[in-house]
Amino acid sequence: MTALPDREAVGTLLRHVLELLDGDVAKVYAERDLADYRPRYSPVVRALLAQGPMPIRDLARTVGVTHSAASQTVAQMNRAGLVDLTPGPDARQRLVNLTTKAHDLLPLITAEWSATTTAMRTLDTELSIPLVDLLTELTTALTHRPFRQRIADAGLPTPPPPPPPPQDQDDLA
């Protein structure tokens, strides 16, 4: 068993929990010959199933990630043959579409989603508050008052202003 991170290292603990959850889901995929499928693909697949092909910008907004994160995930999914990109109505846009390969995998992927949801509910019975409720509460609190502001309010001194830019010798004459 891996030792738990220091209680003060909250970011490390959050990443550790995510690694435990996503790591085991990835093992489930690998055991079912879906080694190219990653847990991070599921929100994209769900969004495309629900709303159809869409630009990466809209996909990012729909799944709640940055454009950069959505772009990276779509690129990985494209390499795995799960999505393709077609020109959108605006020449600057590319529409993300699920491929036939992705549609063929849907019975297995949706069965995993269902089993994962059930497993999460079982895990929640061992916690003092369901994990999704805690994470939603945490997100709301940090959106209302960002952690950066909380750090400043805790007494961290304000950084000094940057020095003025150097003047050219010609300006001094």
Rank of each mutant, 00 (worst) to 15 (best):
L85D: 07
H67M: 14
Q76T: 14
L82E: 01
N78P: 06
T99K: 01
A102C: 09
G88T: 00
T73V: 07
P89S: 14
P107S: 09
G81F: 04
V65E: 14
L106A: 07
A75Y: 09
A80Y: 11
L95A: 08
V63G: 11
T66Y: 04
R61A: 15
P107W: 11
R94N: 11
A80N: 08
G81I: 02
L95N: 12
Q76V: 11
R79M: 12
G81C: 00
D104F: 05
A91L: 01
V96M: 05
R94F: 06
T66W: 03
R92T: 07
L98R: 00
H103G: 05
T86L: 13
T100F: 03
G88Y: 02
A91I: 00
D90C: 05
G64A: 11
K101L: 13
G64P: 12
V83S: 03
K101Y: 08
T73Y: 08
V63S: 10
T100N: 05
D84L: 05
M77F: 04
S68P: 00
M77N: 04
V83E: 03
G88W: 02
R92M: 02
G88L: 00
R94M: 07
D84H: 11
V63E: 10
T100H: 06
K101T: 14
T86I: 05
Q93L: 09
V96W: 06
V83A: 03
A102S: 09
Q93R: 08
G64L: 09
L98T: 03
L105S: 03
Q72R: 15
L105K: 01
P87N: 10
A69E: 13
R94E: 12
N97P: 01
A69K: 10
L82M: 04
P89A: 13
M77Y: 03
L82H: 07
T99N: 00
P87A: 12
P89W: 14
Q76F: 11
D104T: 09
V63H: 12
Q72G: 08
Q93E: 11
K101F: 07
G88D: 00
V63M: 11
T66R: 04
D104S: 08
V65W: 12
G64T: 10
L98A: 02
S68N: 09
A80H: 09
T66F: 05
A102T: 09
P107V: 06
R94D: 08
P89Q: 15
L95W: 07
H67A: 15
V65M: 14
A60Q: 02
L59A: 09
M77K: 03
T99M: 01
A91V: 04
V74C: 08
T99G: 01
N97T: 10
V83W: 03
L95F: 10
V74D: 09
L85H: 08
P107L: 10
A102Q: 03
P87R: 12
G64K: 08
V96A: 12
K101V: 08
S68T: 12
H67L: 15
A70L: 04
N97C: 10
T100L: 07
V65Y: 13
V65Q: 14
L82Q: 02
A60S: 03
N78K: 15
K101G: 02
V83M: 00
